[in-house]
Simulated scan of single mutants.
Amino acid sequence: MPADPIDQALFPPFDDPAGFDRIRADLGAFLPAIRAVCERHGLAASGLAAFERGTNVVVSNDAGQIIKLFPPFLRHQFEAERLALGRVHGNVAVATPEILREGELDGWPYLVMSRLPGRTLEEVWPALGGVERAEALARIGEIMTAAHALPTGGLESLDLGWDAFVERQIAGCEGRHRRMRLPERLVAQIPAYLASARPLLPTSVIPVLLTGEYTPENLLVTRTGGAWRVTGMIDFADACLGPAEYDLLGPCLFLAAGSAELQRAFLVACGIRIADLTPALSRKLMALALLHRYSNLGYQVRIEGWESQASSLSALEQLIWPFPVR
């Protein structure tokens, strides 16, 4: 849809991505643009509410719709979400948003999507017992496996270019983790650790669709038969093509969090044999966690006190992925 002539005042000024992030959840700042989208497509402009978390401007209305505005410097996320949602919606056994409208306002692409019911898994996870947690992780593994089996034709623009991507990530790995304030004793070990793990990393892969969003903030659950069940998945702005192992990290770090039983429930549901839950797999996953484009272990490792427990990257590897398991 071609962009309409729009007054620049629809969007608030900001100097850089950090400046945008500071105002991103301010509904008042983006209200003119949201109302313009609603008027353009005949959407309800009542009951508007902004979501505090996320990367882009996300607003709901009381008609069960989500309006998502992407700043021009995040246009690639708009393309990723549009393409990935178009591929997964209706093709995996979990609810995903339906794209209802798309367009652009003054260089800002946007999507209008259906809103899914449920609460985030992040909200309910602390109250879940061990059995419910294992069932949730197994369910996530099943969903992930189905997504990885989808055809990737037409999604070539999302390809990470894995081999070159890995080289870039290795080159910048120390600097990134120093900026993320990983303890310096661990940062200093990164070159040697990655050298030891290098033969284990996937190479020349046949890429699959990676949503990048198997994290508790982007998985929705509903209560069914007295238990919480994973029923929805949202936010596909980080979708890409790459090796299947790259998608394993979110559930392993955020949810399984050092539990051998939960790691096993998840990874077996992903098609990994119990016999393959070995120290070599631990090292491969730890290396991928270090090399992830959004790696921030201080936020992602959900093991209380891990900084004081892990004297080395090898110790951290075993703390998160205590393989072998029986």
Rank of each mutant, 00 (worst) to 15 (best):
E213M: 00
S60A: 11
F266M: 01
E104N: 11
C270V: 10
A136P: 01
E79Q: 10
A146Y: 07
E102M: 06
G154H: 03
R82Q: 06
R179T: 10
F323Q: 07
V94K: 11
E104V: 12
L83Y: 01
A192D: 15
G130P: 01
P97Y: 00
R326F: 14
R264K: 13
V301T: 11
T211H: 12
G107K: 10
T224E: 14
T120E: 09
R179V: 07
G103H: 05
F30L: 05
E307L: 11
L186S: 03
P5L: 12
R139Q: 14
L262M: 06
P243L: 03
G242N: 04
P13K: 06
C38N: 01
Y110T: 09
V325Q: 12
S312V: 07
G212V: 01
I190A: 03
V58K: 00
E261D: 09
E104G: 04
V221R: 06
T203G: 14
T145G: 07
L100G: 04
R24D: 04
L160S: 05
R302H: 13
L262H: 09
L111E: 00
Q300P: 01
E307G: 04
P243V: 03
P32T: 15
L319K: 04
L319P: 08
W228Q: 10
Y193H: 14
R178V: 04
S311W: 05
I66A: 11
